[in-house]
Simulated assay, not measured.
Amino acid sequence: SEFGITLFDRIKRPIQLTSEGTGFLSLITPIVESVDSLKIQMDYPDRKGAFVVGAYPDLALHHLPETIREFTAEYPDVHLRLVARPYMQLIQMVKSGEVDLALCSPPSSDESSLVFNELFQYNVVLMTPPGHELLKEHPIRLKDTSSWPLILAGPESQTRRRVEQALKDEAITYNIVLEMDNTELIKRYVEIGMGVAIGADFTLHPEDHHKLGVTRLDHIFSKSTIGICTLRGKFMGRAVGSFV
């Protein structure tokens, strides 16, 4: 043989391994098994691996739990890490490679290094305590809301920025009494009458409509988009594709 050893004793019947052949077999067996294992893993690469998903806290709370539960049940050997951050942090994390993809609003048009694919659209809504006076207005004007204490998301929220820009464009004076990134707390403080809130309708559960007065503000704010933001040219394994 190429190694200068005799592997088989062909005189004996049945043919048997020589002592050198037995030693060679013990050395080569782990290598063959490793190659077989590698082939299996390469045949099913979507069943292995790791990736990081970034998302708005509201998306992580309202939209992702069931998706992640189903994914981890189907792909138990894929390590998925979820990071909840506001918009600007998510964009920076995509650009730096800290996350493989982010579920967020579209990046600005000058962000040529990023790719965005739409998932769904959402509406901006007014949330009030049930039976609130604002609910009698048809349609509700933005200046009508300024007569009441406002509860808004934190300064990095895209919806918050749109609301404040619209108020400034109309030179409307407003009073923010509470700002926080936890929408469940925002809804709770609206419910107890601390103020009225303007936010995204994807944060609402069916039961919220029994606790709050909810009115869409389509005549003031156009629909907005949530989608998948990735770094242009970044390799995405099959595990990421399966999650998407």
Rank of each mutant, 00 (worst) to 15 (best):
G195D: 07
G54C: 14
F221K: 03
K223A: 02
R160K: 09
E191K: 14
Y44S: 11
A171I: 01
S34A: 15
L185N: 04
F51T: 07
K223Q: 11
H79Y: 03
M194G: 01
I140T: 08
H219R: 03
M236F: 08
G199M: 04
Y56M: 10
Y44V: 08
A73T: 13
F120Q: 06
E156T: 15
V124I: 15
T128H: 11
G195S: 08
Y75G: 11
S222E: 11
S1W: 01
L90K: 05
R162D: 08
I68D: 06
A153T: 07
R160E: 12
S37V: 09
R81Q: 12
C229N: 10
E20R: 09
R188G: 03
L80N: 08
H79C: 04
E70Q: 13
S26E: 14
L17M: 13
N182G: 02
E118P: 10
S147P: 00
Q165N: 03
E207R: 13
T6D: 12
S157M: 08
L134C: 01
A153G: 12
R141Y: 12
K168W: 01
C229K: 02
N182V: 07
P139V: 02
L142Y: 00
P107I: 09
P107Q: 12
L59W: 02
L134Y: 00
G199A: 12
R188P: 05
R81E: 10
S34L: 15
L7E: 01
F3K: 09
D110M: 01
E118Y: 05
L27M: 04
A60V: 12
K136Y: 02
V125F: 06
R81H: 10
L59M: 14
Y87G: 07
H210W: 10
Q165R: 09
T203R: 10
E184I: 05
I186E: 03
F235C: 07
G97M: 08
I220N: 00
A73K: 15
S26T: 11
I28C: 10
V35I: 15
S34D: 15
L150F: 06
G97N: 11
A55V: 08
A50N: 12
E2N: 15
A239E: 15
H63N: 08
W148P: 00
L185I: 06
L38D: 13
P130F: 03
I40E: 13
